[in-house]
Each structure stands twice: as C-alpha cells, then as structure tokens.
Amino acid sequence: MSTARHSPARSIAAHAVLIAYTIIALFPVFVIIVNSFKSRRAIFADPLALPTAETFDLVGYQTVLKQGDFLLYFQNSMIVTVGSLFLVLLFGAMAAFALSEYRFRGNSLMALYLALGIMIPIRLGTVAILQLMVASGLVNTLTALILVYTAQGLPLAVFILSEFMRGVSDDLKSAGRIDGLSEYTIFFRLVLPLVRPAMATVAVFTMIPIWNDLWFPLILAPSEATKTITLGSQVFIGQFVTNWNAVLAALGLAIVPVLVLYLIFSRQLIRGITAGAVK
C-alpha cells in the first residue's frame, strides 16, 4: 500500500487529536467521580488531585444515602425504563413485522404515519397529555410515564426494525408456512431471534433518552413516590446546593448505572449503527 496513507507522522497526529478530544470528553466525569470521594476541604483546596489517604472521605455518599431516597428513585427509573423498553420492543417489532411482511392496502401510508413521530417531538403535545393523564387519573403514577415513553420510542423502533426485517430471508418464512406454522409462531420463533442485533441497537437508542428525561417526570409524576433518578438528583441538587460533598456524590451515583449499561451494550450499539442504519 502507499506510504502516504500510513505515514507515522499522520498517525501520530490522528492519535494526538483523538486523545485530546477524549480528555475533553471525559474530564468532567473524572472531576465528579474524583471529588466525590474527597473531604470538603480537599475539594476546594485542589479540585484536580486524586483522593489520598488523608483527603479520602465518604461523607458525601453517607449524606446522600441518609437524606435522599435514592434507592426508591433508582427503582422507579428502572421500572419506567425497563417497562417502556419492553413495550417499545414488543409493539415496535410486531408493527414492523406487519409492515415489512404483509402487503395490504394502506401499508405505506401506515408506515409514513408511524414515522411522523421521528420528526415531531412528543413534548409538543404535553399540554394535552397532561389533561389526558389528569382525566384518566394517571398523574403521579409510573404507568403514565411508561405509556408516554412507549409512544415516544415506537416511531424510531418501527422504522429501524422494519428496515432490518425486510432483510430476513423469505425462504425461511415460506418453509415455516409450508410446515404449517401460524403467522404468530413465524414471528416469535423465526423472525425475532434473527433481528436480535437490531433490537439491541433500538434498545440503546430508546433507553438513553428515557433514563435521562427530566421533562415528563417533572410534569407527569413529580410526587415523592414516583420520582425518577434524574428528577430526584435535580431536586436533591437544588436543596443541597452548598453541600458539595453530597451533590458530587449524588452525581456520581447517577452516572454509574447508565455508564455500566452503556459499557455493556456499547459493542452491540456500534455494530448496530455500522450495520447500515444510516443508509
């Protein structure tokens, strides 16, 4: 191959830029985590130093666990995220299968209708959603959040999954039909396992905005019993704004779960994106 493409100088320059940007990307996370383990005095004295034996202090985490109901918030976030993720994947895959597999009148119109939601944010309907939830008595319940997030996640899920389902071999499905399998069995037993990588991609894209959302928890479910972790830490920060140990510890606790989930899924996510979701 030509040397122009792989000259060492070029490669060093590429690494330098990427390392510099990686530092910019990770620096704030580093600041939070490091300082959350330090005593108050050390946080102010030298914010960038790593905790040493002298400055190591868990007082922030103790305050958080004592004061905030973080375990409950965390549980609420988990219920909402997992619940809506399950519904988005199930309903989304079913609709995507119907759209990609069967020819019926209004098929492309239906696809267009379901894709509208990708471009138009659900937040613009908030005023009426709140009225609907008040009327049906769902305000301050996790059900309200799950329903809203399911509706929010469906358009993109249907869009991506139907692209992938078009790629599932027809021969396989025909063989299933000849063997007398019902359409439902074909969907659940044959097609779903084959689109698992696409489901993982959709799962990550659906999960992150739900976990991080502040708008709907603030409006639909702000009560103490239904606060999600994002809203909970926002309120906690508001109350403890001068207690830096506690605030940093709360932020640290809010980062960890989503970071762990991301690191688990990241390989799958990148594979899903590069498999041609953009084309």
Binding site: M94, F97, L116, Q131, V158
Partner: peptide, 19 residues
C-alpha cells in the same frame, strides 16, 4: 400485529398533539 403500536402511538402522541 399492528394494533398495539398504532393504538398507543395514536392515543398518547397524535391525539394529544392535535389536542
């Protein structure tokens, strides 16, 4: 196959938007 997605999407997203 279509009903659950269309129902939830219509009831929670499209109808409130027009509301």
């Amino acid at each position: 196959f279509l009903a659950p997605a269309v129902l939830v999407y219509t009831a929670i997203m499209i109808v409130p938007l027009f509301g």
